[in-house]
């Protein structure tokens, strides 16, 4: 058994890169999916609306852990054996998309109805209304809750350790197994998560203040 040393710390920091990567995948994929879901929820086509509602309800009502199991073990048994990073990225994307979809739908709907009417009366079609009038205003409203949710996603990537993906939490377990200094090791792990999340929280609060007073 070795003592916790700078090598271990570097190993943790290195593993944090995978946490960041996984967060970025979840966020990029989730943003695309979330935007599609938000717009589908607000679509004039009933079938599309119900499809989006159904997806959001099911995914929001399912633990992320189960999504990870399904993406890794479930798809594996069905013949699509995914790398842990791909399976984790997929599960996190599906999860993030469902939540961002609902957050963004709310933001789009909080733009006053009169903005739709005014742009309609000027002759803009629906796509033009979204692009030029509604989404720019919805974005301002969306930034604080979106950044807030990013913090959740960063922390939730730790669940990917369960399917053997070596990110920060899994690296912490490995280091602990060789040093057996759980308190020290997991305080370090927690500190690195904090270092990743805190800037986001601060940014979120800053934007909230700024956007509250600005246009």
């Amino acid at each position: 058994m070795t003592q916790f040393n700078s090598f271990h710390l570097l190993y943790l920091v290195d593993a944090a890169k995978w946490t960041i990567l996984l967060s970025l995948i979840a966020f990029a994929g989730g943003a695309v999916l979330g935007m599609a879901l938000a717009l589908s929820r607000l679509s004039q086509w009933r079938a599309l609306r119900w499809l989006a509602i159904g997806y959001i309800q099911i995914v929001q009502g399912t633990p992320l852990l189960i999504l990870l199991f399904l993406a890794y073990f479930g798809l594996g048994i069905l013949g699509a054996k995914l790398e842990p990073v791909v399976a984790a990225g997929l599960a996190l994307t599906l999860y993030t998309g469902a939540f961002l979809g609902e957050i963004w739908r709310g933001c789009i709907q909080s733009v006053p109805r009169t903005q739709w009417e005014a742009s309609d009366c000027l002759g803009l079609d629906r796509l033009q209304q979204y692009v030029w009038v509604i989404l720019p205003q919805a974005t301002r409203i969306a930034i604080p809750p979106t950044v807030g949710f990013m913090v959740q996603v960063v922390k939730n990537t730790s669940l990917a350790s369960i399917i053997g993906f070596i990110e920060l939490a899994r690296a912490g377990q490995i280091v602990n197994n060789s040093t057996f200094q759980p308190f020290l090791v997991f305080v370090c792990v927690g500190a690195i998560y904090f270092a990743l999340c805190y800037p986001l929280s601060v940014t979120s609060r800053y934007l909230e203040r700024k956007l509250h007073v600005a246009r």
């Binding site: 903005q115 009417e117 005014a118 009366c121 000027l122 803009l124 033009q128 030029w132 205003q137 246009r215």
Partner: peptide, 27 residues
Amino acid sequence: GMVFQSYNLFPHLTVERNITLALTLVQ
């Protein structure tokens, strides 16, 4: 053309862009 009680200008755009928006996009 229609004008509303609550003006309904686009708050994120300048006065000029409020006016040119439909001119460039629609016309």
